[in-house]
């Protein structure tokens, strides 16, 4: 199953910016959702209790536990909330859609409007 996200925040810049869209995948096995598996360097979306749904990079993997980081000193990540358990992972990002799609769509509209 695929899920589309937009990004709020700058902790993964320059790899991921706020204008990017993210496509995440969650495997479906025998009709039910399975938990995504991630390796070091993967970008994952997860939900820790008390935090919004977050996106970070996996920096270490142990058995069913991930250490996740942002790229800045003050990023809210495993340094704040500890490891992410596999059961807390929603999707693994497989595609970063660049190019500020919605911004360009709006600009396109504005241009068209002024042409008329």
């Amino acid at each position: 199953m695929f899920k589309l996200y937009r990004v709020e925040g700058k902790s993964l810049e320059p790899k991921i910016t706020e204008t990017d869209l993210l496509l995440g995948i969650r495997p479906v096995i025998f009709g039910s959702f399975s938990l995504p598996k991630a390796k070091k360097g993967d970008i994952i979306v997860f939900k820790k209790p008390g935090y919004p749904k977050m996106v970070k990079e996996v920096s270490m993997v142990s058995v069913d536990q991930y250490v996740v980081i942002g790229f800045h000193d003050d990023s809210i990540d495993s340094r704040h909330f500890g490891v992410v358990y596999r059961s807390e992972v929603c999707t693994r990002i497989v595609w970063i859609i660049r190019g500020a799609l919605f911004k360009r769509l709006r600009q396109g509209l504005l241009r068209k409007t002024s042409d008329q």
């Binding site: 996200y5 937009r6 700058k10 919004p52 977050m54």
Partner: peptide
């Protein structure tokens, strides 16, 4: 009208947080 449509499509996409406390690092 179209602009509203784009806005509503965009806001219908769930947001994921990649937040820093303050991104300034100063």
């Amino acid at each position: 009208m179209l602009s509203k449509l784009i806005n509503s499509i965009e806001s219908s996409i769930p947001a994921v947080a990649a937040h820093c406390d303050i991104p300034c690092k100063i």
